[in-house]
Every structure is written in structure tokens, then in C-alpha cells.
């Protein structure tokens, strides 16, 4: 009967699941994992803020270019008149 059990895939999946849960709990609770997670989240937050800064910089520089273009167009109109 035991041999039959060992041949059954579902049993192995069940045992594997329990092992994964036990190991996973250990890993998650370890200080090293916590440290890695904190660092990863901090990196992601920094990345998010940097992306926002870059986006703001791009937008402002584009605004400045548009302003210059408008000024030039206005000056050209004045010259034609």
C-alpha cells in the first residue's frame, strides 16, 4: 500500500506543497530575506521617484522649447508687419 502511495503523483504534490510551505515560511521569516525585500521595495520607490523627476524634467524642457518657438513665431509676425 505504501508503495502504491509513493507511486501516486498527488501524494508527491501534497508533500512538495507542505515542504514548500515550511521552507517558504523559514525563508520569509529570515532577516536576510527581510533585508532583501526592504532594499528591493526602496529601490522600486526610488525608481518611481526618479521616473517622476525625469518625467517632470522632460515636460519642463519641452515647455521651454515651445515657449521659445512661440516667441520666435511672434517675433517673425512682428517683422512681417
Amino acid at each position: 500500500m505504501w508503495k502504491d502511495c509513493l507511486k501516486c503523483d498527488r501524494v508527491w504534490v501534497f508533500v512538495g506543497g507542505i515542504a514548500a510551505a515550511v521552507i517558504g515560511k523559514k525563508v520569509l521569516k529570515s532577516p536576510k530575506t527581510r533585508e532583501v525585500c526592504v532594499k528591493t521595495v526602496a529601490q522600486a520607490m526610488k525608481l518611481h521617484q526618479d521616473a517622476q523627476t525625469t518625467f517632470a524634467n522632460i515636460k519642463e524642457e519641452a515647455e521651454d522649447i515651445c515657449f521659445d518657438a512661440k516667441q520666435e513665431a511672434a517675433a517673425a509676425c512682428d517683422c512681417q508687419q
Binding site: Q49, Q52, T53, F55, A56, E60
Partner: peptide, 9 residues
Amino acid sequence: TCCKNGSVL
């Protein structure tokens, strides 16, 4: 002003 990149126009 924009606090994200510290810009002042």
C-alpha cells in the same frame, strides 16, 4: 514650482 524636480519657474 514643482517639488518633484525642485524647479522654480
